[in-house]
């Protein structure tokens, strides 16, 4: 009924210590992970070929990045990296200092020390280590009992001394019994003392001054403020922030705007990049960052970025950079929603818009060429006798010719341009199947996935026909591990390196978006699958199509790396046997290149 | 807010209308105007005989021109026939009949356009046919052809592959696919 308060400061330090540990230990672990183990910003992949490609692209990127972009990137990277004096670090430092202070206080507190030493430790009493055997315990007891036996004591000892030694003897006997006698041992293990349950006191682990008449109104006030102001404030802030954003990371108002545009979209309208940019310009995220600007302003800024002009009335490049860098998540969100309403044309246009924004190139027929650095647009457009739209076509000419076509006179500049051109990954389809792990074919109502085998190649390299690659290079392991998780093969590929994108405000990595549509109605059937791991080592190979004329006996297919993409299907195979036709689209988000767009037959057989 | 003009007998909106409202008002006005000018008090969804005759005459003369290899005139007549069908028919006439008529005439118009080398217009009409649900190999063959001639090689291949999923053994589509592949190989160097 009557609770004791912690007058002697025996227990409240432990309480505060526990609270501190609850906060500090997870925080410390996560901070250590972030500082030392987080690999998401890595430029080392453990894959020397991939690092080689990375290095080449980084060098070229650095050469062509403008000063404005460089400054913006530095500021962005600085804020992303953890600062020494960030809030987290300060909390950690102060927290651990408090812990040290409390531990020191506990050690200096005699009352705590006394109650700790009051604990019954049979091993210490017998003078043996906790791992001693029964024989050691017996011999230790025998020695001590001889020393402390009341009958063996000298008659000269005073009453106090005698009492002390007798008490000692009792303790030693108890200790011996606690370790050997069954009943006493049970008592010791259950209650911590061989005599059974000791007195237990219950109290409140808080000093009494907190509840004394003087301090208690203050404590109540603190409680009131915490419960009625501080707690609701933080919970509301957290809740509205969580509620404001969809799973894909875009604002709910932006998402509902996109859904509205998608639902009211007329099939007679042709989807263009301009249309997508117009939809983007109404994003809520932009309004939050720049409340004073209108949708028309945002649209103009994005167009300025794509056309590499500066027509907007807002001349500060930071405004444009923030808007453009936000487009990444907005476009991914729109892509997801477009797949949700099954609109293939809009999904495709979203990906094309992505490329236009990343490369700052408008969606003209010449976009593959215009994404290259140093191109003299006027000379190129008026010059070509033979219509050149693709990098592949460009590389049918000798380097000097290419310089003339692109209007590049400087040899050093031409070399850089050709480096970029030959390091843009192109995909060549080798094989695509519907696979059901453990089955030789697709059976009715099974769950197949799509397995795509392709070659990553440079536009400069000679085309290798798919037949040149033996089945052994394309087949997959059939062991149990593979059947359990057929998608594990994707994890073995290294992450994509940073892209060549000197106009995009932040450093970014290429990704491949995979869309699947039904050929019967031409509509998409599932959300996009984004691939961010792919080996680009083939880009390092010297296989210039202007020099290699024929694929002779010296051609070794094993030297080439085959890329794999696995696309899970969102629905099972049809319940009846027959053929179903699917269109698979695999597009790069960052480059204008030869993407994959092909038809696959699902042969459903018993 | 909507206002009604007793002279023109038409509805219009006060202020800036939404797209949906604009379409709805347009449809109501079209229906009203057609109803007012209808002379037969017992009108039915059956197509008007005189309008049908007019359309048929125009269309037939267009076909005759085509047979005589006078394609510009053929195009003019067939286009006129389609215009008549769009303008002169009452909006309450049976949709199924109107659709079939339009699809039939469009197919002939497309063929004439292709002969005349007017590929972009042929493509638009082909897209229209596909939008009305006519997804058939014959339509996709012509669409592939038009896209190839317009230099849209990637799109041509995609349409050709779609055609082949409808009829995997179609010889013309197979030949077109080979042509797409060949042209794309050259396009990509």
């Amino acid at each position: 009924q009557s609770y004791e308060y912690d007058e002697g400061s025996e227990t409240w330090p432990f309480f505060v210590l526990t609270m501190l540990f609850v906060v500090l230990v997870p925080l410390s672990i996560s901070q250590i992970y972030r500082l030392f183990l987080d690999r998401s910003n890595a430029t080392e992949y453990g894959d020397p070929e991939q690092e080689k490609v990375q290095k080449i692209l980084e060098e070229v990127n650095d050469e062509f990045v403008t000063e404005d972009v460089r400054v913006f990137r530095q500021a962005y990277e600085k804020s992303a990296r953890s600062n020494i004096w960030s809030k987290r670090n300060i909390v950690l430092i102060v927290g651990w200092a408090l812990v040290a202070f409390l531990i020191q206080r506990i050690r200096e507190n005699d009352a705590i020390v006394a109650s700790a030493t009051g604990l019954f430790d049979p091993y210490a009493l017998l003078g043996v280590s906790p791992s001693a055997t029964d024989r050691d315990i017996k011999s230790a007891y025998r020695k001590l009992s001889v020393k402390f036996h009341p009958d063996k004591l000298s008659k000269d000892l005073g009453g106090e001394e005698r009492a002390r030694i007798e008490e000692m003897y009792v303790q030693i006997s108890k200790a011996y019994e606690a370790l050997t006698d069954e009943i006493t041992k049970a008592n010791y293990l259950t209650y911590g003392h061989p005599d059974g349950p000791q007195t237990v006191s219950h109290g409140i682990a808080l000093p009494s001054f907190l509840v004394d008449r003087v301090a208690s109104p203050v404590v109540i006030l603190i409680y009131a403020v915490m419960l009625s102001i501080v707690l609701p404030y933080f919970v509301t802030k957290w809740w509205s922030r969580t509620n404001s954003f969809t799973k894909k990371g875009i604002h709910v108002k932006t998402a509902s705007h996109f859904v509205d545009r998608l639902a009211n979209f007329k099939p007679s309208e042709i989807v263009t990049v301009d249309l997508i940019v117009n939809w983007l310009s109404n994003a809520e995220e932009f309004k939050i960052i720049f409340p004073n600007l209108t949708a028309a302003d945002f649209e103009e800024l994005i167009h300025d970025h794509i056309d590499r002009t500066n027509n907007s009335r807002l001349k500060d490049p930071k405004v444009r950079f923030r808007i453009v860098s936000k487009c990444h998540s907005l476009l991914h969100g729109l892509l997801d929603l477009a797949c949700g309403v099954r609109n293939t044309e809009i999904a495709n246009a979203t990906l094309e818009t992505f490329k236009c924004i990343v490369q700052a190139v408008p969606h003209t027929p010449y976009r593959q060429i215009l994404q290259l650095p140093n191109v003299n647009k006027e000379k190129f457009l008026e010059g070509s006798v033979d219509e050149i739209y693709t990098l592949g076509k460009l590389f049918t000419y000798e380097d000097k010719e290419i310089g003339k076509i692109l209007g590049i006179d400087d040899e050093h500049k031409l070399k850089k341009t050709l480096t970029v051109a030959s390091h843009i990954p192109h995909l060549k389809l080798i094989k695509a199947d519907f696979l059901v792990p453990g089955e030789p074919q697709v059976t009715p109502s099974s769950t197949p996935h799509i397995s795509v085998k392709f070659l990553v190649r440079s536009a400069k390299q000679k085309i290798i026909p798919p037949e040149k690659f033996p089945e052994s290079m394309l087949e997959e392991p059939q062991d149990f591990e593979f059947q359990k998780d057929p998608f594990s093969i994707l994890e073995s590929q290294p992450p994509m390196p940073y892209s060549y994108a000197p106009f995009f405000p932040t450093k970014r990595r290429n990704a491949l978006c995979c869309l699947v549509a039904l050929q019967k109605d031409g509509k998409l059937i599932q959300t996009p699958v984004v691939i961010d791991k792919l080996s680009l080592q083939n880009l390092n190979k010297d296989f210039d199509k202007r020099q290699v004329k024929d694929l002779d006996e010296n051609f070794k297919p094993e030297e080439w790396s085959i890329g794999t993409i696995k696309i899970p299907l969102g629905q099972p195979a049809p319940a009846e046997t027959g053929d179903a036709f699917f269109r698979v689209i695999i597009k790069s988000t960052d480059y204008f290149t030869s993407d994959l767009d092909f038809t696959m037959t699902m042969q459903v057989r018993e | 807010e909507i206002s009604y003009d007793t002279n023109s007998k038409k509805l219009s909106s006060v202020g800036e209308p939404t797209e949906g409202l604009e379409i709805a008002l347009g449809q109501v006005n079209t229906l009203t105007t057609a109803l007012i000018s209808e002379t037969n008090p017992n009108f039915t969804p059956q197509p008007h005989e005189d309008v049908s005759k007019l359309i048929k005459n125009l269309f037939d003369s267009g076909l005759k021109n085509a047979q005589q290899n006078k394609f510009p005139e053929a195009l003019k007549n067939v286009s006129l026939a389609i215009e008549m069908a769009q303008r002169k028919r009452a909006p309450w006439e049976a949709f199924a009949i109107q659709l079939k008529e339009l699809q039939f005439m469009l197919r002939h118009k497309i063929d004439i356009l292709l002969v005349l080398g007017r590929y972009l217009e042929a493509l638009q009409d082909l897209d229209m046919l596909m939008n009305t649900g006519l997804i058939q190999p014959e339509v996709l063959i012509r669409k592939t052809d038009a896209l190839l001639k317009l230099g849209q090689l990637d799109q041509a291949r995609i349409e050709c592959e779609r055609g082949l999923t409808l009829q995997p053994q179609n010889a013309k589509l197979k030949a077109l696919l080979m042509e797409c592949t060949r042209k794309l190989a050259d396009f990509n160097g």
Binding site: K266, P267, S268, E269, I270, T272, H363, P365 | I23, G26, Q27, T30, Q86, R89, P91, W92, E93, F95, Q98, L99, L102, L120, E121, L123, Q124, D125, D127, M128, N131, T132, L150, G151, Q152
Partner: peptide, 22 residues
């Protein structure tokens, strides 16, 4: 019928977009 007419009338605009794109 009206939807059909609207779709037919959008052909001109579509042509213009194609010309601009290609």
């Amino acid at each position: 019928n009206q939807a059909l007419t609207r779709r037919y009338n959008s052909i001109f605009k579509r042509k213009e977009v194609c010309i601009k794109e290609w």
